[in-house]
Design a protein around this nucleic acid. Structure first.
Lengths: 114, 114
DNA sequence: TAATTATATAATGATTTGCTTATATGAACA
DNA sequence: TGTTCATATAAGCAAATCATTATATAATTA
């Protein structure tokens, strides 16, 4: 029997995390691309600890996965999360954020770092 | 031309409001029923000012409408809000909350008040 | 093995949030 | 017209949030 609905506690916790512009943009990006911390630092023009803390919240809820590749740690959407369909539905309504990654590529920042 | 996506600022602001269990439940209820403040006070077992403040936030973003009916002020979903489809999509994933209103009816609280 | 790079965690502080109590407003009714 | 009822607003406070700086950890490279 498939899970049609989410408990209210779970739903509000997820929405709370997505209710921050930085995290919401991260999630939109992660839905299509794996990213590492240094890329987010570049994109959001903020400190590395700040990014790490946003990531931790998303990871604590299991929404994203972590994978070390050598020196770097890559994050990706956890598409097998119980409530990924819910998250995906939300992300679908948001404008594509790929321009942010394209900027990095143009700067060479993407390649340099990861 | 229909608006397919929401600006990130707008989306995160909406999600932030929905990221609170009380407001999320209110919205789920309001999607099907008009309610007045006193009903919410009963349902959420909290103070009237607390409910009023949650309502104000939802109203400030234009997500709900206010209508005075004599002594009472009724709130309802603003279904013509630019981003109502987005909100509705989210609410669709949540469990029905009608039992909360049914309880009020059984207590007589719903009828008494409104 | 020492220095560097990428990231996480800890500690701190300013801001925001969400509640509470107290008070104001506005309609209804006796 | 004064009292009551429903709601809003104001003020105050504790807890949560989000950034920052400082430090720790773990892999890489010289």
């Amino acid at each position: 029997m498939s899970k049609a609905t989410i408990e209210m506690d779970k739903a509000s916790a997820i929405l709370k995390l997505l209710g921050d512009k930085t995290r919401l943009t991260m999630m939109k990006l992660l839905d299509k691309h794996d990213c590492c911390v240094c890329e987010f630092v570049e994109i959001f023009k903020t400190s590395q600890p700040s990014i790490s803390q946003h990531i931790r919240k998303l990871r604590d809820l299991g929404l994203i996965k972590e994978e070390r590749r050598g020196q770097w740690i890559f994050y990706s959407m956890n598409k097998s999360h119980e409530h990924y369909p819910f998250v995906q539905e939300i992300l679908k309504h948001l404008p594509n954020q790929d321009d942010k990654l394209r900027e990095l590529e143009e700067q060479g920042t993407r390649i340099t770092c990861c």
